[in-house]
Nucleic acid binder design. Structure first.
Length: 251
DNA sequence: AACTGTTGCAACCGCAACTAT
DNA sequence: TATAGTTGCGGTTGCAACAGT
């Protein structure tokens, strides 16, 4: 290969930043194939790329890595992202592990765009739900049922505290870049439909088994999650997944 | 055509966790 | 065990592309 990267930026020792050039991508790919996806600092130096190891790693993981999906996020994937975000919050890398071919960065960007649109839509529909809501610190707590119990709102220990029937939902306002009450109704509108599903899931997850690392046996899918995420296992305790579902079929 | 505002996303930054020595 | 180096993560920024005027 006859790369001119050094000449392109002048023969100085400063690390390059910003958009990657095609030549840099090609060189990075060839050195990853040569040295593997480890020791990024060493790889960066060995490759002659004037990039930090960190930058090389990011470029590889988010763009060059094989099996990455570069098409639009499907409705099925979008649904999974919504459900998992409701459950895990901004744990983008964790969510990304459930969606092979998608990166944490991609999901994070998608969510920000997606939520912004959703909130804009829901702004017009606010006030249609009667939901008990209170704020504790930077958290927003809400309860969708008639079983709302003020005495329980003080606890932060569980997502379901605050409602005696367990239908409460904890939202972190930091997740939405929203901190003041005028937005709470909109959030409520949007998240209300998710809480029921999550509550069911919370209960069912206790009965799940893990495959391989955890129990070395096949998981019993609950009806809901096996529909949403084909072949999924107890995602809170075990990151092992049966990737036989259509969602994992990558071109 | 030129300017301005908005959007989407690639890439960077800071920090915490992990690993090697 | 201590420390330095590396990796992983989430938040943020910068900029190209696009839309509207």
């Amino acid at each position: 290969m006859d790369f001119q990267i050094g000449a392109m930026q002048g023969e100085h020792d400063q690390l390059r930043k910003g958009t990657w050039l095609e030549e840099e991508d090609e060189r990075l790919i060839s050195f990853v194939q040569l040295m593997g996806e480890k020791r990024w600092d060493a790889l960066a130096k060995a490759s002659g790329l004037r990039r930090s190891g960190k930058s090389c790693r990011l470029r590889w993981l988010n763009y060059l890595r094989p099996n990455l999906k570069h098409d639009q996020i499907s409705a099925e994937e979008e649904n999974i992202i919504i459900q998992l975000h409701e459950r895990w919050g901004n744990k983008w890398s964790k969510i990304a592990r459930i969606l092979p071919g998608r990166t944490d960065n991609e999901i994070k960007n998608y969510w920000r765009t997606y939520l912004r649109k959703k909130l804009a839509q829901n702004q017009e529909e606010k006030g249609k739900e009667d939901i008990a809501t209170t704020a504790i610190g930077d958290k927003i707590w809400k309860c969708e049922s008639d079983e709302y119990d003020e005495n329980l709102w003080g606890s932060k220990s569980s997502s379901w505290d605050g409602c005696s029937d367990g239908s409460g939902l904890l939202l972190s306002s930091g997740d939405f870049e929203l901190t003041s009450s005028p937005y709470e109704n909109r959030l409520s509108d949007y998240w209300i439909s998710l809480s029921v599903l999550s509550n069911n899931d919370e209960q069912d997850s206790n009965e799940m088994k893990c495959y391989d690392e955890c129990n070395n046996s096949m998981v019993d899918h609950d009806q809901y999650w096996s529909t949403i995420v084909p072949g999924h296992h107890d995602y809170d305790q075990c990151d092992t997944w049966n990737t036989s579902g259509s969602l994992w079929d990558m071109n």
